[in-house]
Simulated scan of single mutants.
Amino acid sequence: MIGGRVPRTGTEPVTARSAVRLRLLLSGIFLPLFAASCVLFGVWAAHSRAVDSPGRAVLVALAVVCGVLALAAALDLLVVMRRLRRERRPSR
Rank of each mutant, 00 (worst) to 15 (best):
M1L: 06
I2G: 04
I2P: 02
G4Q: 06
G4P: 05
R8L: 12
T9F: 06
T9V: 13
T9Y: 02
T11R: 12
T11N: 15
P13M: 04
V14S: 12
T15I: 05
T15A: 10
T15C: 08
T15G: 03
A16K: 12
A16T: 03
A16R: 15
R17H: 07
R21N: 13
R21D: 15
R21T: 12
L22E: 10
L22S: 13
R23Y: 09
L24W: 10
L24F: 09
L24T: 01
L25R: 10
L25T: 06
L25K: 14
G28K: 03
G28R: 08
F30Y: 14
L31D: 01
P32S: 07
L33S: 08
F34W: 07
A35T: 15
A35C: 08
A35I: 10
A36S: 13
A36Q: 05
V39E: 09
V39D: 11
V39K: 08
L40D: 11
F41T: 11
G42W: 08
G42K: 06
G42A: 14
G42L: 06
V43T: 10
V43A: 09
W44V: 11
A45M: 02
A46P: 00
H47N: 15
H47A: 15
H47P: 05
H47D: 12
S48I: 03
A50N: 07
A50S: 12
V51I: 13
V51T: 15
V51N: 09
D52S: 05
S53Y: 13
G55N: 11
G55M: 07
R56E: 15
R56A: 14
A57F: 06
V58G: 02
L59A: 10
V60W: 06
A61P: 01
A61M: 07
L62M: 15
L62P: 04
A63E: 07
A63C: 01
V65F: 10
C66W: 03
C66Y: 00
C66M: 02
G67N: 01
G67R: 07
L69R: 08
L69Q: 12
A70Y: 06
L71Q: 06
L71I: 11
A72H: 02
A73V: 10
A74D: 04
D76N: 11
L77T: 04
L77P: 04
M81N: 04
M81Y: 04
R82E: 05
R83N: 05
R85Q: 06
R86N: 02
E87V: 03
E87A: 11
E87K: 03
E87S: 08
R88P: 05
R89Q: 09
P90F: 04
S91F: 00
R92P: 14
